[in-house]
């Protein structure tokens, strides 16, 4: 539990065909680890975006590692649309499971609670239901004439994110990003990269303990300073907008994407 390992050892947890949960850009995205994962080339990943993705998802798609994409959106934010995602959609390069944000949260919450499904409002009448045949309409058993959607539990094989800090006991500070707790409790394994490891336990005081993912739910931790770059990390550093824009421009073509990725992986190899 909460074993502190190298980035390579951490990345090895992501194996071909695994269901991988990744957070939205504002939650701490493990970009350095993504470079390490790409180096291993695990194919046919089922990527569950919680509830959306950006550059990380676009890179995994561009590298041809995604077999199934389950997401409520893919966007590079201010830098615009995600080019490898858009190209992959046109070519039918992966199975697309379009979703809506609260349905992704609900699926993970169901897994977190160990129940098979969770009801959720809305969705009925949306074209999402035409392809999301795994979502069902049931009659509210407590109230006549109230059809409601149920979504099945989502249990990722691996959840991965980047956080500011872990302690040497394997507890991870997640602040108010509570969806990271949900992801980790729903997943079979959780791997986390952090900016630094502290010597004192994060559970030692009430103030810090409230915003902590306990080591019980953490499989492996690796240190990766500025590990969310070029994306930002809450409370630590802002997104490198110029770099994201550079990616957005280069990734418009497969060749430009390959050139970008070459530099991206080299940067992390050198840092390691």
């Amino acid at each position: 539990m909460g074993e502190i390992v190298s980035l390579e050892e951490l990345a090895a947890e992501v194996t071909p065909g695994c269901k991988l949960a990744v957070p939205a850009d504002y939650c701490g995205v493990a970009m350095a680890a993504t470079a390490a994962i790409i180096a291993n080339r695990p194919k046919d990943l089922h990527v569950v975006c919680v509830p959306v993705t950006g550059m990380q998802g676009d890179m995994l798609i561009g590298e041809g590692l995604v077999g199934v994409l389950e997401t409520s959106a893919v966007t590079l934010g201010e830098a615009g649309g995600a080019p490898r995602f858009q190209d992959g959609v046109r070519k039918g390069a992966f199975k697309l499971m379009d979703a809506t944000c609260p349905a992704v949260h609900s699926g993970l919450i169901a897994a977190q609670k160990g129940v098979p499904f969770l009801p959720i409002r809305g969705i009925i009448g949306s074209d999402l239901l035409k392809t999301r045949t795994d979502w069902k309409i049931i009659d509210n058993p407590f109230q006549k004439g109230d059809p409601i959607i149920v979504v099945p539990a989502i249990q990722p094989d691996v959840a991965i994110f980047h956080a500011p800090e872990a302690d040497r006991f394997g507890n991870v500070r997640i602040g108010r990003r509570r969806e990271l707790v949900t992801m980790a409790q729903a997943a079979k394994a959780t791997i986390v990269t952090v900016e630094r490891i502290s010597e004192t336990s994060l559970l030692a005081s009430e103030d810090s303990a409230a915003g902590v993912l306990p080591a019980l739910y953490v499989t492996k931790i690796a240190v990766a300073p500025r590990g969310a770059w070029p994306l930002g990390l809450w409370g630590e550093y802002a997104v490198d907008s110029a770099e994201v824009a550079r990616y957005a421009a280069m990734a418009k073509t497969p060749e430009g994407f390959a050139a970008y990725m070459d530099g991206f992986s080299r940067r992390f190899r050198e840092a390691a």
Partner: peptide, 11 residues
């Protein structure tokens, strides 16, 4: 292709 539904199918 645009980004996706986000939370619209609920909100």
């Amino acid at each position: 292709r645009w980004p996706g539904c986000f939370g619209s199918a609920f909100m």
